[in-house]
Amino acid sequence: MSTATERVWAALEALTDPEIPVVTLRELGILREVNDAPDGLEVVITPTYSGCPAMGQIEDDVRARLAELGVAARVVTRLSPPWTTDWMSDAAKAKLHAYGIAPPHTRPAPDVSVMRFIKRPAADVVSCPHCGSSRTVVTSQFGSTACKALYKCLDCQEPFDYFKPY
């Protein structure tokens, strides 16, 4: 890794997600790579899903930070492989919880059997990030953003987002 690449990584470490300002792009797994390319540096970002409305802002934030450094780099949005919540760091999940967003569960291996099409999978138990209760219900498959679902705690009555596993 070159000195320029290390300098860019260090500068981008502090950039936070515009929709969830307590977690960094790197902690979420959106900031994927900083590469030395023949024609200069390349910064690779991957959206949490292909229609993520925050990607324009994220790219602008990356470009602004690079401009502050005086570094010329290309910002590339890469869709393959697709982003997964497996790319989130444990620190990101802890920060989501502290912020009032239930972090995603670990995804099980995909079920490709015919039984998958016959019976509905059991719903994940999503604990309330406010009081810890497991007595929660989904109120909408979409929360404040499409990558989150809206839940309500039946004990403390607080609504909260759940970051859906992908």
Rank of each mutant, 00 (worst) to 15 (best):
E6P: 04
E13H: 08
D61G: 15
V112A: 04
C131E: 04
G40W: 03
P129S: 12
L154C: 05
T136E: 01
E33F: 14
T136L: 01
A14S: 13
V22R: 09
E68W: 03
A109S: 13
T77V: 15
D124I: 00
P110D: 15
I45F: 07
G51K: 01
K95E: 14
V8G: 15
V75Y: 10
A64W: 01
S89I: 02
V44C: 06
E19L: 14
Q57S: 11
V114Y: 10
M115S: 07
A94F: 08
G51R: 04
R116F: 02
A92E: 09
P159I: 00
V34D: 10
D155C: 06
T77R: 15
V76P: 03
L41K: 08
R116C: 00
P21G: 10
S140T: 00
G143E: 10
G70M: 01
R120K: 15
R135F: 01
A67W: 05
A149K: 10
I118E: 00
A54N: 11
D155Q: 07
E13C: 10
S127G: 07
L66E: 09
R32I: 11
V23G: 07
V125R: 11
D124A: 02
E27A: 13
A92Y: 10
P103C: 00
C153Q: 08
T85K: 04
P47I: 05
A94Y: 08
Y166D: 07
L41Q: 11
H105I: 02
F160M: 05
A149L: 10
E59M: 06
S113T: 11
G132F: 00
A146T: 14
Y151A: 15
I30C: 03
G40M: 07
I118P: 00
V34I: 08
L154F: 03
A94M: 10
T5P: 08
E27Y: 13
R120H: 12
K95G: 08
N35G: 10
R135Q: 05
L15K: 05
D161T: 06
E68P: 12
V137M: 02
D111T: 02
L150S: 04
Y162R: 12
P103M: 00
V125M: 05
A73C: 06
P104R: 00
P18Q: 12
L96W: 06
A11K: 05
S133P: 03
T24C: 12
D36R: 05
P38C: 13
G132S: 03
E158K: 03
I20C: 11
G40H: 12
A4L: 13
